[in-house]
Computed example of a mutant assay.
Amino acid sequence: MDLFNPSPYPLVAILRGLTPAEAPKVGQILFETGFRMLEVPLNRPGAIDAIHCLLRNAPDDALVGAGTVLSVQDVDAVKEAGGRLIVSPHCAPDVISHAAKHGMIALPGVATPTEAFQALAAGAHGLKLFPAEMIPPAAVKAIRSIMPVDTPLFPVGGIQPHNMAAYVAAGATGFGIGGSLYQPRIDETAMRRAAEAFMNARRNLLEEAA
Rank of each mutant, 00 (worst) to 15 (best):
L18D: 02
R192W: 02
I177A: 07
T112C: 03
R44W: 06
M1Y: 03
R203W: 04
L30Q: 03
G157S: 04
L205G: 10
A23C: 06
T33A: 09
A66D: 01
P24Y: 05
G17Q: 07
F154H: 11
P131G: 08
T33K: 08
V72C: 14
P155Q: 13
E208Q: 14
T33Y: 01
L85Y: 00
P161K: 02
P89H: 00
K128C: 03
G123F: 00
K25Y: 06
T33C: 12
A190M: 13
F130K: 04
H98P: 07
D187E: 15
I86Y: 00
A138Y: 13
L15A: 12
D61Q: 10
H98T: 05
Y182K: 04
L85A: 00
F35Y: 13
I159G: 04
Y182W: 03
V156L: 09
R202V: 02
G176P: 07
P184T: 03
A124N: 04
D76I: 05
V168I: 12
R193N: 14
T114D: 09
D2L: 14
L30A: 02
A99Y: 00
K128L: 09
K128W: 06
V95D: 01
I86E: 00
I96M: 06
L206D: 09
E133W: 08
M1K: 13
V72H: 01
L153F: 12
Q160E: 15
Q28W: 06
T151E: 11
G123M: 00
L129N: 05
I135P: 11
Y9W: 08
L3S: 11
R185H: 14
M104W: 01
P161G: 01
Y9T: 08
I159Y: 04
K128Y: 02
D76A: 15
P8I: 03
I135C: 13
D61T: 12
A119D: 04
H162A: 14
F175M: 04
G27A: 09
D61L: 08
L107Q: 04
P137A: 07
A99T: 01
P45M: 05
E32D: 15
I135F: 09
N57V: 10
A21I: 08
I48R: 06
V78G: 00
G171A: 03
T68N: 08
G157C: 10
A119W: 00
L205P: 05
Q28A: 07
P137D: 14
P45I: 07
D2A: 14
L127A: 11
M37D: 00
I146N: 11
A13T: 07
A170S: 11
A210C: 10
A142C: 12
R193P: 05
L30C: 06
A81L: 01
G179R: 08
A23I: 03
G109E: 09
M1S: 13
A170K: 07
A100P: 07
M191C: 08
R84H: 06
I48A: 06
A106S: 15
A165Y: 10
E207D: 14
